[in-house]
């Protein structure tokens, strides 16, 4: 049995006739902050709901602390904190009630930490939950989720719907908490700048399959963007190292994976090569999952995962 906190092992999930996850396999090691990225409908929320036992996979398995997510008991759940994308709290309660409810339903609860945290966020115990702003609810959700000192914190797009200021505050709170507790975090997000700030490792889901499972540093090191103006008569380059070829005036923008010196030499021999600045995570995300434009060539992502698609068998 591995010591990985989270393991997705070839998880497949269907909704009606649509495949949402196609053979998802991910391992999250203790202490890692893992960001699950993907476009809308890529399967991030489904993956997290399977992990929490709210949904069952059709194939494969998801385990948390070595326990199958379908059989999570109170013992395992006590070690998990969860922040949903809509920051659900009982609207019939006040902040004080919500804290008491959390305290009484969790075996461990850091009351002093909560007091300090809600004070820092400007929350008062008497405030009714429906009267809180979306940002305040997000902060309270996060405080309550980590108050029980979880070993695994699962956040499903926790910053969704927050404005830039609130998102930054939320992120700061999360960073502080991580510094204090050092727990493992698995979260999904659409805010790639935030992900860059806190994630150790990212997984990019596209169309139900995992395209990337890498550290940020490794990703940035291995993917190189450059401009290339071909000599007369030359066509766009191809091959397994060329992820994307986007036409521009007088040439192409190339996204290369693990480019070899021979590849650069070949490009220089057949045209003019101009190196681009180091891509951000957002650039990489768009290169890998973004829409195709007319004239653009890209290593077909579908082909990259074709064995998995065959395993899904229904498209």
């Amino acid at each position: 049995m591995s010591k990985d906190v989270v393991v997705f092992d070839r998880v497949e999930r269907w909704f009606g006739v649509h495949t949402v996850l196609r053979g998802l396999s991910v391992r999250v090691q203790p202490g890692t902050v893992y960001a699950l990225l993907g476009r809308n409908g890529a399967g991030k929320t489904t993956a997290l709901r399977i992990l929490l036992g709210f949904l069952h996979p059709h194939e494969g398995s998801a385990t948390v602390f070595g326990c199958d997510s379908r059989d999570l008991g109170p013992g395992e759940r006590a070690r998990i904190g969860y922040v949903g994308e809509d920051h659900r709290l009982y609207p019939t309660m006040s902040v004080g009630d919500a804290i008491a409810f959390e305290k009484d339903t969790r075996p461990a609860f850091r009351a002093a930490f909560v007091e300090k945290a809600i004070e820092r966020c400007g929350l008062r115990r008497a405030q009714r939950i429906p009267r809180l702003s979306r940002g305040q609810r997000a902060q309270l959700s996060l405080i309550l989720a980590v108050a029980s000192d979880p070993e695994l914190l699962i956040c499903d797009d926790p910053a969704l719907g927050l404005d830039a200021v609130m998102r930054r505050e939320f992120l700061d709170a999360l960073v502080d908490l991580l510094a204090e507790t050092g727990c493992t975090v698995l979260f999904s997000s659409h805010f790639l700048g935030d992900v860059e700030r806190i994630a150790d490792r990212v997984g990019i889901l596209h169309d139900g399959a995992l395209l990337v499972d890498a550290t940020l540093d490794d990703l940035k090191r291995r993917i190189v963007r450059c401009g290339w103006s071909p000599a007369a008569g030359e066509t766009a380059p191809g091959g397994p190292n060329v992820l994307r070829v986007a036409p521009r005036r007088g040439g192409f923008d190339l996204t290369l994976l693990d480019p070899t010196p021979e590849l650069f030499a070949s490009l220089r021999a057949h045209g003019e090569l101009a190196e681009a600045p180091t891509p951000t995570l957002e650039d990489l995300f768009l290169d890998l999952t973004g829409p195709e434009r007319p004239g653009m060539l890209r290593e077909p992502l579908d082909d990259l995962v074709s064995p998995g698609r065959a395993a899904g068998g229904a498209r």
Binding site: R10, H58, R201, V212, D213, A214, L304
Partner: peptide, 20 residues
């Protein structure tokens, strides 16, 4: 109708293209 129940036995899924 549950189409997932009718598909052929699963083949190994493709590993991620970019892995650390």
């Amino acid at each position: 109708p549950r189409r997932h129940a009718r598909r052929a036995a699963g083949e190994p899924a493709a590993p991620p293209r970019i892995v650390t």
